[in-house]
Amino acid sequence: MDRKTLEKQMKLYLNGEMSEPEKVAFENLLADMEIAVEDLPEMHRTARALHTRRRPSPPPELLQNYQQELKTSFADPPLYLRWQKRMAELWRALVIQPSPALRFAEVAFLMILGIYVGRSLLQTPDVVVVEDSYNNSGMFYPNLRGVSEANRDQIREMLFGSEQLLLEIINTGDDEDFDEVEWELNRELADELLKIVVPMQQRAIQLNHPETLRFLSKMEIFLYDMANMESEEVAEALPFLKELVLETSLHLEVRRLMDFYKEETPADLSV
């Protein structure tokens, strides 16, 4: 037997990993080998000493503290803490680290929501026409809730310009000297208003307000006449225009419509 094998056998022997027959055979072998036998009893004694070492006892107070602290550390937490933990886990699973499928579903949901909200914002809302209970005029007020401020301003601008022109005509006396410069300004204004009358008619259709639409239709003819009138024709045509305005009561109608499109109409207040 070479030295390596011998050492290996000795380790097995000292570690107590030999079966009884192997142990006896090995002890017999060692008995024949002077050097190994010299070392073995002392090694054997050391191993026995280690095996029979008395287990030390911890100080009772330390053991008690140790057990108590562990018990406290791993006791069930209060109910609110458990819920807090569950909510944190849910938040983590849904928001911080969602699974790929969940992430896809979340993105799809957000896209659908975005499209829906975007379309709602871009679409003109259906206008609810409410009967005027404010002044019993028999007219209908458009419900302007949801109509943008920019759209209201356009209508107000149209009405304001129209009223200005109509009052100019009514207030000009028959025997008054005709001011050519002033009339040129009126003609320019009529021309400007004529350009926006069509978009305003479309807006009135969208708002589903027949009163506005009717007024704009009448006003369109009037504006056309004014915009295309030559300077030399004005003095002659002015009395007819004045008569036309008074007959059609356009100046009164425009005033009433301007009241409708104030910042807060009676219809807005009634909803």
């Binding site: 100080p59 330390l62 503290n65 057990q67």
Partner: peptide, 30 residues
Amino acid sequence: RSAFGKLVELHQEKVLYLAYDLMGDWDDAK
């Protein structure tokens, strides 16, 4: 956590003794 507490109860002494055998001091072992 409470289930783990039961496991702790089962093994706490063995772990304490092992730590003592390796560290040689009860406070360190604890």
